[in-house]
Nucleic acid binder design. Structure first.
Lengths: 145, 145
DNA sequence: GCAAACTATATTGTGCACAACTTAATTTCA
DNA sequence: TGAAATTAAGTTGTGCACAATATAGTTTGC
């Protein structure tokens, strides 16, 4: 009997489940900071670069298009996390900058990665290896997308 | 300098990206069958069990709640993939069964797992190991969710 | 036997994610 | 230089995903 269609055999189903589980793991930690996971990803980018980022740059890093980012950034602006303003050098683009509140939040978020790492139950070594395996899988797949 | 908040260091961001890439990889194959990825997951469950499944059973396997499944199954019923009917043994539950069209689709879908596996560029051995690593990570994480 | 607790599903509201399309600004090049 | 192509955002419509809540059917315990 052909078992290739059995759901429990599928790598992709594991990744789908894992992704959902991780979102749930983040939820309580991010709730303290008043963020959702995609909002947290945007904040990571803004925290690690001092300068203003264009929406295009954020989209390139997160691989999200404007249909996702436009409303996401609007909600974040409403939460006083960031400001959006047309770039006067090129009026097509919009520059995103952190507000004082947005910058402040970095102090709270600082401990999230370590807490998450602990919850995974992985060793440093296992983490490094898994990251590496996923990186090469991502590379392989991106070639075909 | 503390780099724990750097996005490229994060396992979770990789999983998030990988999940999106995989969905895009599936898209053209599933489009031929007229399915989305979550719809395909429901079909996998129905294909591998001959009997009718309750929504509860499907939700337990996919870890999806009724807020997701109710509209998802309604769309699938409209596509003539399945039928929903109250269980006369216990009127609280709804039994889901494949239509002729839904059963037929299995023949088309049969080749999807092999095609996907090819696109990942993994060896059989790498696949087995990665599945194993992800399984134990899922187990660890589920304990904390 | 019947009220309280429980169970299964549905509904509502919020937030992604993306394809397809629109608008406006900038660049290219004939 | 000015029309055509390109680029950056925004908009619209569809489809998940889930928390919170509502509803209806079933079971339990006194």
């Amino acid at each position: 009997m052909n078992e290739s269609l059995h759901i429990e055999n599928q790598l992709c189903f594991r990744l789908y489940q894992l992704n959902k589980s991780i979102t749930k793991l983040y939820a309580p930690l991010l709730k303290e900071a008043g963020l959702t996971y995609p909002q947290y990803l945007v904040m990571l980018i803004l925290w690690q670069n001092d300068q203003a980022q264009t929406i295009k740059e954020i989209g390139d890093i997160l691989e999200l298009n404007s249909g996702t980012l436009s409303p996401l950034l609007k909600r974040m602006e409403k939460l006083d996390l960031l400001k959006r303003a047309r770039n006067c050098e090129d009026e097509r683009s919009v520059l995103v900058t952190l507000t004082a509140h947005g910058k402040e939040l970095k102090l709270k978020a600082k401990f999230i990665p370590a807490k998450l790492f602990m919850l995974t139950g992985l060793s440093k070594d296992e983490l490094i290896h898994l990251k590496h395996d996923l990186d090469s899988l991502i590379d392989n797949i991106q070639q075909h997308v």
